[in-house]
């Protein structure tokens, strides 16, 4: 009896593998790639001014003792449009929001900001995705919480929604 069961074991294992693979095909992996830089100091980066009359963003701006949000966005990014009203409310609640625009141009950004509003203190144009990769950011929009010493406290992946606002504001308050 035991021996017979043993003979069925390889078949059973293969059947189980098939079920697992099939389930995997039905539910394609939608892996969220979290940055490994959370908890570490900001990487060195300089993203030159994207807009005339508004400063660019560099790692050196983040060491003045003031905690802030660093938003990674792009004018071509549809969810980013949805996020701007939330960022404007965060700004009204006292948050300073700096930003890096990826794969973007001044002309496109001018249009985007005039249509949606401009909650940003600084807007840096990321040259060749260097800053984005340095942050371990895998897409747009993403929002990092950075404390006054330039340490990354938190990474929010995706659109900032109404529900995320209290958490982000509390983190900024705590980091003071």
């Amino acid at each position: 009896m035991n021996r017979k069961l043993l003979l069925w074991l390889p078949f059973g294992l293969c059947a189980l593998l098939f079920v697992v693979f099939f389930a995997g095909l039905k539910h394609p992996d939608d892996h969220v790639i979290a940055s490994q830089m959370v908890g570490k100091p900001l990487p060195e980066f300089t993203a030159g001014p994207a807009m005339p009359g508004q400063p660019g963003t560099a790692s050196s701006d983040f060491k003045d003792g003031k905690p802030r949000l660093l938003n990674i966005f792009a004018s071509w990014c549809v969810p980013c449009v949805q996020e701007i009203p939330m960022l404007i409310r965060l700004k009204a609640a006292g948050a300073e929001i700096d930003s890096i625009a990826v794969h973007d141009t001044t002309a496109d950004l001018t249009k985007f900001l005039s249509q949606n509003g401009n909650p940003y203190t600084r807007i840096g144009l990321d040259e060749g995705g260097k800053a984005q990769i340095a942050f371990g950011s895998a897409g747009v929009p993403e929002t990092f919480v950075v404390d006054g010493k330039g340490t990354i406290l938190y990474q929010h992946i995706g659109v900032v929604t109404e529900e995320d606002m209290p958490k982000l504001l509390a983190m900024l308050e705590q980091a003071k």
Binding site: I33, A34, S35, Q36, M37, G128, G129, K130, Q132, I133, A134, F135, G136, A138
Partner: peptide
């Protein structure tokens, strides 16, 4: 494309492929 550029630039600057790999793993896991 940005990552390909980063890899070529770093390797041209004398880094070993495994150094560049660990840089990327340090960013993205």
């Amino acid at each position: 494309g940005d990552m390909r550029r980063l890899i070529r630039e770093r390797i041209a600057a004398g880094e070993s492929p495994e150094q560049v790999r660990s840089f990327l793993i340090g960013r993205y896991g």
